[in-house]
């Protein structure tokens, strides 16, 4: 697979979805706790759930994570823990669900749950920065494609340019936030009313959590 196609996959995996951030955040938390039972059936249920709500995004996320899953599989094969692969896959699917929240709304949701504004804003900025950097990486690779550089040299040059751009971006972000009078300590919340889709996500997440709890107690 070409590098820029891979970047497109990551971009697709990080695309925004229209979940209500508070509900999504709670659902993600419940699903994560359930996933840590390390049961294959629970992991499969979580993967199915994420596919049910966002098939394209989840598929892109899983395809983009293939190298990581393969690496994890290899390490597990040597050191043991192969049965944990479904759980790792489920966690990646949950990550795709979480990354569907718009960064600003993610910050609002965190503040709604009494997370200190400074921390909430920092997480929200970091999420936004990640989106910007993925776009920068894509455009840098596009520029490099035109210069006919191939093989190992392609990746060396890409990383050289990208690391410099990362620093410039971080500085530009700081400059813009300063110019906009950004105040880390200000508590700003905007919440929309959850829709049927959000409640269904929450309900199914609770069902999975209940199933995990019951099955663990039954054993």
């Amino acid at each position: 697979m070409r590098f820029w196609s891979y970047l497109k996959l990551i971009e697709m995996a990080l695309e925004e979805s229209d979940f209500e951030p508070r509900i999504c955040l709670v659902s993600v938390l419940i699903l994560c706790i359930s996933a840590y039972s390390f049961r294959i059936d629970v992991a499969l249920a979580i993967i199915f759930l994420t596919f049910l709500f966002n098939p394209k995004k989840t598929l892109a996320g899983l395809l983009a994570s293939t190298p990581f899953i393969a690496f994890f599989g290899l390490i597990s094969f040597v050191l043991g823990g192969l049965e944990k692969i479904p759980t790792v896959t489920a966690l990646i699917c949950i990550g795709c669900l979480l990354y569907g929240i718009q960064p600003e709304n993610f910050g609002y949701a965190l503040m709604y749950f009494r997370i200190p504004p400074k921390l909430a804003h920092s997480i929200s900025i970091a999420m936004r920065m990640f989106q910007i950097l993925i776009r920068d990486l894509k455009l840098t690779s596009e520029a490099l494609r035109l210069s006919n550089v191939k093989g190992f040299e392609y990746y060396v040059k890409l990383m050289k340019a990208f690391s410099a751009i990362t620093v410039l971006r971080a500085f530009a972000m700081a400059e813009t936030l300063y110019s906009r009078g950004f105040n880390f300590d200000r508590r700003i919340i905007r919440c929309e009313k959850p829709k049927l889709k959000d409640w269904s996500l929450l309900l199914l997440s609770i069902l999975i959590a209940c199933y995990t709890y019951l099955i663990r107690n039954a054993l």
Partner: peptide, 12 residues
Amino acid sequence: GQNADEQIVASR
């Protein structure tokens, strides 16, 4: 600032 691309902070 000069470069609009660098000054857009929010996603929307």
